[in-house]
Amino acid sequence: MDRLQIGLGQNSYDIILASSAISEIIPHIENLHDTKKCCIVSQNNIFKYHGLELFKILKSLGYDVNIHIVPDGEKAKSIKYCRNLFDFLLAKNYDRHSLLIALGGGVVGDLTGFVAATYMRGIPYIQIPTTLLSAVDSSVGGKTGINFGGIKNIVGAFYQPKLVFINTEFLKTLPEAEFKAGLGEVIKYGILDGKNFFNELSEKVNIINPTYEGLPALIKSCCEIKARIVEEDEKELTGSRMLLNLGHTMGHSIEVLTGLRHGEAVGVGIVYVAKLSKNLGYLKKDEAKRIIDLIKKSGLPWEIPTCINQQSLLELIEKDKKQIRGKVNWVILHGVGDVRIHSLANSEIPII
């Protein structure tokens, strides 16, 4: 078992990296606070594989535990399912000291975190990610939210969990495509970090799988990179945290219009930004090729689907939450390990 800490003053918390039984989390839950009332928020298959054991352990220790199941997919990140969870917590008399446990991927974590941030003006929650994408990215950093009006994560809050518990054993139950989608975020961190991590991924990305012996170290590296950035700029006030949006401005819009998995759409977004950065004169041709080749080698989608209506795509980008006074803040590549924020109008971003 390994441990990292995100240092955010009174909002600091640990990231626990484990590789064996889910029971390892129990001492950490017991140390959080004195509540014995908690709710596991999950999805059917995930709860079947991982949640039932956690439920039984908590029950045996005297916890008052409830289970709240949400549907698979982005539809769960909606006003409807947010309200359903509010109603459930009220009906079960959850108070400000009760604990929410997000057991699932990014959808479960985002929804649970947002409800925790807003129910009774804030109750504690912990993240137990069960996908590669949520382990390396969405469970860490306190971004919570739901989709609204056809726009991803447009309603949300910065609200840090009390704990993140990552168990690589969970990833062995993932479908191959679901696991692979997480590589989009992993590659993002390789680009942000610079040449060593990027070079490692360039050599090994095609052999990374749930049983890959280097997987725990890879997840830890991603979490360390994100922790450093979040510690510098917890709520995107100075701009450094915006760098984590690499590939996401185009990626989010593609995800909404096509139904691609988040990590798949981020992969397409990274390729788009590499081409855009090259065309704008910021990224050398050979660097752009290395980045695009890495996405291709990973097996992720890399081209904008031809079924997308370009006007619809541009309209969604205009509504992006990073839009300020008619321009969108794009994360533009100047090199591997050198990414910067550029404010661009839609007229400056051809669909390439």
Rank of each mutant, 00 (worst) to 15 (best):
N93D: 05
I128D: 00
S240G: 06
H262Q: 12
E224Q: 05
Q311D: 14
K275L: 15
K289T: 08
L171G: 08
T131Y: 03
F198W: 07
P71M: 05
Y272N: 05
I304S: 13
A181P: 04
M120G: 09
K80W: 02
R121T: 05
S138D: 06
T112K: 04
W302L: 12
L276V: 08
V70I: 15
N329D: 13
G104A: 12
G190V: 07
T118D: 14
E178K: 01
G149E: 14
N147K: 12
G263A: 07
N45H: 12
N93I: 06
C39F: 14
N147V: 01
I304V: 00
P216L: 01
G267K: 07
T249N: 08
K235Y: 08
E264R: 10
E53Q: 14
I146C: 12
G7L: 00
H33R: 07
T306Q: 13
F86R: 12
G105Y: 06
I25H: 09
K289V: 09
F170K: 00
F86M: 13
P301S: 04
K195A: 09
V271M: 05
N346E: 10
G104R: 02
V266E: 06
I40K: 10
D110R: 05
G62P: 02
N11L: 09
L183Y: 01
K226T: 02
E236F: 00
E315G: 09
G184I: 00
D2F: 14
P350G: 07
G263Y: 00
E287L: 05
K59G: 07
C38Y: 09
N245I: 01
I308M: 08
N153V: 12
D95Q: 11
E169P: 03
L183E: 00
G190K: 01
C223S: 09
D72F: 09
D34Y: 13
Y189S: 02
S20D: 13
K59V: 08
L280G: 11
E30A: 13
Y282K: 15
D72V: 14
V268D: 06
V107T: 15
V41W: 05
L333F: 03
P124A: 09
K321N: 06
Y81K: 05
I166L: 03
Y189N: 01
A181I: 13
H334A: 11
L246W: 04
S134I: 09
N147D: 15
Y189V: 01
S42L: 02
K226W: 03
H342S: 15
Q5W: 13
V328K: 08
V339W: 08
A217E: 15
I332M: 14
T130A: 10
L100A: 12
R96D: 10
M1S: 15
T238R: 11
L100M: 06
V331A: 03
C82Y: 15
F165E: 11
T130R: 07
C38L: 15
I22N: 06
E232N: 05
V271P: 08
N167D: 07
D2N: 14
